[in-house]
Design a protein around this nucleic acid. Structure first.
Lengths: 188, 188
DNA sequence: TTGACAACTTACTAACCAGTAAGTAAAATA
DNA sequence: TATTTTACTTACTGGTTAGTAAGTTGTCAA
């Protein structure tokens, strides 16, 4: 039986990562919030590196589960895109969180190598799903854009990532304006 | 006579900010790199908060100087946009740096209030210049996009910010692909 | 009932952090 | 020349960091 504590640590670490970044939270933060001692965190995750990797790995697994879920697979391209946008909108709504990719890429030069690897894999997976969804929509005649779907996907993903961050300084409206503009660009 | 040291501190702090983030560098890093002692940094910038603000303030002043410079003012909208894109391309070329706005927004919840204020002002200034340049280009018939220029500006700025970060995980090609896609979207 | 193991706590360490108080040497000023 | 000011250094503090070693308690299997 896996403990509740291990999952609670992962949940809180993920939340703290999206809130303050990898260098912005400590084992003490997690411990005090959970009402346990520092060493309890080290029992489940010997190093901060392993904790960070476990958070990203779990996020990646969750994304793949969603993507391969019939409820998502059977959506139309527009609905798939809306579902994807809503993931980011929910992060914004949840205390102004930003996406894991953006946090870890911003701190890329001061995080462990294994966590950099996880970040690269996560970004590639998001990008690849988005590119094939865009291609699918263009083939179906519902999306319109020039050039390769992978380039347009990189544009959209980078913008969502940046817009979540920007919304911290300028407010939620900025984020929603960016999303609306993407739809306008794509559907015209 | 302002010392070389003060400027060297600002230069290095700006570079470290773009490299490792506000929580990712210390007075000791700056001191050892410059061959002075910790206290020398505190002499010029009593607190890290003041140092951070001075870096962003100098960056804002520099941007306003560029923007109000006749050499930039007299450019065509396309040239202005290319010039703006090249600022970001140069950051990417310079050891994979990311933009100040992106770093500080990502760390927004763990930086001092005065630095948050500087971040907001910087982002507003970049956004406002970009929006009026887009408007100017659309009026001149060289740019094409739907909706408000301020929304398209937020889309482009957020994307440049995100693409610099993303390029750390995926490489420089990703950044250039995003810029090329923006041009394609705008010029069609 | 005993032994093993899981899930912790207690108590600690060495490194690093921003920040400070007091001293110093050289240059500018009067 | 005397005094002040600038630009530091030396030496330190209290707080925080990830990480560790050794001990404790409750559960479960043999």
């Amino acid at each position: 039986m896996t403990t509740n504590t291990k999952r609670a640590i992962l949940d809180l670490a993920e939340s703290l990562l999206q809130d303050k970044g990898f260098n912005g939270f400590s084992y003490a933060h997690i411990a005090s919030e959970l009402g346990v001692k520092n060493a309890a965190i080290h029992y489940h995750f010997p190093s901060k590196e392993e904790l960070g990797c476990a958070v990203v790995q779990r996020y990646r697994d969750r994304f793949q589960l969603w993507v391969n879920n019939a409820r998502v697979k059977d959506l139309s391209p527009q609905e798939k895109l809306d579902w994807f946008f809503s993931i980011y909108a929910n992060m914004r709504a949840d205390q102004g969180k930003v996406c894991l990719g953006g946090v870890l890429e911003t701190e890329f030069n001061s995080i462990p190598a294994s966590l950099r690897q996880q970040t690269e894999s996560l970004t590639n997976e998001l990008l690849s799903w988005l590119a094939s969804t865009l291609d699918e929509g263009r083939d179906a005649g519902v999306f319109q854009f020039n050039g390769q779907a992978s380039d347009k996907a990189a544009l959209i993903l980078s913008s969502l990532q940046g817009a979540l961050q920007m919304a911290r300084a300028l407010g939620t409206d900025t984020f929603h304006a960016v999303v609306a503009q993407h739809k306008q660009d794509l559907f015209v």
